[in-house]
C-alpha cells in the first residue's frame, strides 16, 4: 500500500467508521487508526513517521462527506456515519453517564423541535435505561443547578409526569400537550 493510495485509505476509513456505527459506537481518530491497522493498513499509515497517523486520519475524515463528526463531551472529535448512527443517537451515546445533561438535552430537543413534553418513563426504557433512583438523583442535581433552570415538569390529570424545557414550551401549552399525549390511547 503506497502513501499515495489515499482513496483506498479513505475508503478504509469510511468502512472502519461504518463498522463502528453499525455497532452503535462512536469512534475517535485513534480508534479508527486501530481499526485500520487491523485491516492491514498499518504500513500505509506509517509511511511518513513524522506525521502522527491520528492527525492524518483526522485530516482525511474531515474530507469525507459521508462521515459526520461530533465534538464529544470529552472535548475530542468522534465520528459516525449518520445513515447508520443518527445524530440524535450519537448525542445520546456521548452523554451517557452524565445523566442530568443527557436528560436535559433530550428534554430540550423534544420541546424545541417537535414540540412536546416527554413522559418521564422515556428515560427508563432503552437506550437510556435509567433506574428510577438515577432519574430522581438527576432531578435533584438539575434543581440545584442554574444550568438546568429551564427544565420543568407538569403532571397530567391521570398523574403522569411529563418533562419540558421552558425555553421552548410555555407551561400551559406543555400541560395541554401532555394531556393530549396521555389520551392518545383513547383517541384511536
Amino acid at each position: 500500500m503506497s502513501a499515495g493510495d489515499a482513496p483506498d485509505l479513505g475508503k478504509a476509513i469510511v468502512e472502519a467508521v461504518r463498522e463502528a456505527s453499525a455497532e452503535a459506537r462512536l469512534v475517535g481518530a485513534d480508534e479508527v487508526v486501530e481499526r485500520l491497522r487491523a485491516r492491514g493498513f498499518g504500513e500505509c499509515l506509517d509511511t511518513e513517521p513524522e506525521v502522527d497517523p491520528c492527525r492524518r486520519v483526522e485530516a482525511l475524515l474531515s474530507g469525507l462527506p459521508e462521515i459526520a463528526s461530533l465534538a464529544s463531551l470529552s472535548g475530542r472529535a468522534v465520528y459516525h456515519d449518520p445513515a447508520l448512527l443518527s445524530r440524535t443517537y450519537a448525542r445520546i451515546l456521548d452523554r451517557k453517564g452524565v445523566t442530568a445533561l443527557l436528560m436535559a438535552e433530550e428534554i430540550r430537543a423534544n420541546s424545541r423541535d417537535y414540540p412536546r413534553p416527554v413522559p418521564v418513563e422515556l428515560f427508563e426504557a432503552p437506550p437510556f435505561d435509567l433506574a428510577p433512583e438515577a432519574i430522581e438523583a438527576a432531578f435533584k442535581a438539575m434543581a440545584a443547578s442554574e444550568e438546568f433552570r429551564d427544565i420543568a415538569f407538569t403532571t397530567t390529570s391521570q398523574g403522569t409526569v411529563y418533562l419540558f424545557s421552558s425555553l421552548h414550551l410555555e407551561r400551559d401549552y406543555a400541560t395541554f400537550l401532555a394531556e393530549q399525549d396521555e389520551t392518545f390511547s383513547m383517541n384511536p
Binding site: 443518527s86 412536546r116 422515556l122 426504557a125 432503552p126
Partner: peptide, 13 residues
C-alpha cells in the same frame, strides 16, 4: 417511540 441508532427522530406517542 424510542431512539434507535438508525433514526434521527423518535416520538413516545
Amino acid at each position: 417511540s424510542f431512539p434507535t441508532p438508525q433514526a434521527e427522530y423518535y416520538n413516545p406517542a
